[in-house]
Amino acid sequence: MDLSVTLRGQRHNLVLKNPVLTASGTFGYGLEYAPYGDLSSLGGFVVKGLSLTPRLGNTPPRIVETTAGMLNSVGLQNDGVEYFLSETLPKLPWRETAVIANIYAGSTEEFAMLADRLDGEEGVSALEVNISCPNVKKGGAQFGQDPVLAAEVTRAVREGAPHKHIIVKLSPNVTSIAEMARSVEKAGADSISCINTLLGMSIDYRSRRPRLHNVVGGLSGPAIKPVAVRCVWEVSKSVGIPVIGLGGIVSCQDILEFIIAGASAIQVGTANFMNPAAAFELVKDLPVLCSELGISSIEELTGSLQIG
């Protein structure tokens, strides 16, 4: 059973030993999950969003459990890119698996600086550009909702990190995700990951107060999976670059659904919270399910949706 996949980008390919990545913000910097499985067994992991300088994050409460999902408004709390590079990255098994740096910035210039800083780092396989975080005031969603700004950011990162595979992470909170996808593809993205969280809200009906301090936050978990599958399908039809699918994946059956919809690889997010061994278990079980179904390679399954 061949689990390996190659994401063929416009400038650089990204080779993964299997299609199971973990989603940014749900897997810490990887080390948090080392007691629960073998990090190097994963196709790769996308680290918690990095910014140029440390960010405090939003005031709690930051998370709310919802039916088959959760809301979060963490606000990209992180220790900054320098701390990651000097203290964390050396401890990660980057020779054995892909370590992907998710990056966030409040301006195009800052994105370019971050990209430049990471470009020479041997331990970083790819950059995932976060233009879709709904929980920060500046940048974030505003880049992710405007195809012109999204293209500008993509171009800045592409130029800042000419030696890296560039993934652009798209928001579902747009009128046409296909239009966003075409825009970042034209601007030089090597691949697209989708979807980020859906903007949502929860209210304590007794106190009549929002449950999140930030009032609104991003919805994730099994509840959003049908939206995510639809987005992956629309995006993959609209662009020539590979798509990494995420949104509510908890089972191997879910993984196949995303791949058939058009994804070349997937990310496991909220499921890591539901079970700290979730991603490791999926890597172990995927070949079992594939062989049951007579699937001999993941790549041949990508985009094999039959309509009509």
Binding site: G25, G28, E32, P61, R62, I63, E65, N72, T270, F273
Partner: peptide, 12 residues
């Protein structure tokens, strides 16, 4: 808290 392992940053 969601995860208990330091990843979700919800319990801070």
């Amino acid at each position: 808290m969601a995860c208990g392992v330091g990843a979700c940053l919800g319990c801070v």
